[in-house]
Design a protein around this nucleic acid. Structure first.
Ligand SMILES: [Mn+2]
Ligand SMILES: [Mn+2]
Ligand SMILES: [Zn+2]
Ligand SMILES: [Zn+2]
Lengths: 138, 138
DNA sequence: ACACCTGGTGAGAATGATTTTCAAGTCGGG
DNA sequence: CCCGACTTGAAAATCATTCTCACCAGGTGT
């Protein structure tokens, strides 16, 4: 090859039973779920998908921006189908209930801070954890 | 025991060579380091400390608020000696260079959001990742 | 200095999440 | 159909972090 490279052709992505299954499982729940949970859930409902495939699919969906991924306080990655626009989450530490929140001011602030220090290719993580009103009444 | 409990006596914490070593190693570098890195570093300079001990010590320091802990984008926990007041970080994804940043407005905002949704016992994580000016000039 | 109790250590095994392997299965265009 | 490119998934491999547990050391009372 000399220079015949199509600008990073993003493979069309085939529609398979597995990918559909993961997407649907995700669409079905409202809060963050780990790859393991999705895998087990699918298995239980007789639509088994290999664990490796669940991980692969979840990651692609995340890269494609179709789902949000965040790490719980103990480092486990969890995914959730979310609205398209950029936002963050208020998550209940005990039941996982999630509220999407937006903060234009915060976005501006992080960008400003990064600029001020000459950092490029910036990204940020911002999550709020707490105990939801339901779980509060012990 | 009936009610003779001194409000959770926090054990005095013994000053051992190991604990000192970890603290010093941490004091010596300016950016975030993982437990593994600290462990290897100490080993290389002939002041070996068991990996398990490094993990234990780092966690205690973090609990005691003496060091900050955050998770890199791929989920690894890294520690750094920091100033006492609450703040966040602007971290270089490639070299680890760190800048401490404060944002009173952000703190207020997260508290307000949590209140609005009735969440209690709230905490938050906020980190900014990017490529520092030095690493930028590839 | 001495015995003793308790916290601290660390080598190695155990966990657990995520990744890699790679042989076998599936898709879709020609 | 037919082939090559994309997918799968069971099992093995990675890797960070935790646990076990026999052994060691700091602090305390004598
Ligand atoms: Mn944001
Ligand atoms: Mn803060
Ligand atoms: Zn809850
Ligand atoms: Zn850098």
């Amino acid at each position: 090859m000399t220079s015949t490279e199509p600008p990073a052709e993003s493979a069309p992505l085939r529609p398979t039973r597995q990918r559909r299954a993961v997407s649907e499982a995700l669409a079905a729940c409202d809060d963050f779920r780990s790859a393991q949970e999705i895998h087990e859930l699918l298995g239980r409902r007789g639509d088994p998908v290999g664990l490796a495939t669940v991980y692969r699919t979840l990651q692609r969906l995340a890269d494609a921006g179709e789902v949000d991924m965040l790490r719980t306080e103990d480092g486990e990655a969890v995914y959730r189908r979310c609205s398209g626009s950029h936002h963050h989450h208020l998550v209940c530490r005990s039941c996982g209930a999630t509220v999407e929140v937006e903060g234009p001011a915060v976005e501006r602030w992080t960008r400003a801070i990064a600029d001020r220090h000459g950092f490029a290719d910036v990204s940020h993580t911002l999550e709020i954890f707490g105990t939801c009103p339901t779980c509060a009444e012990s």
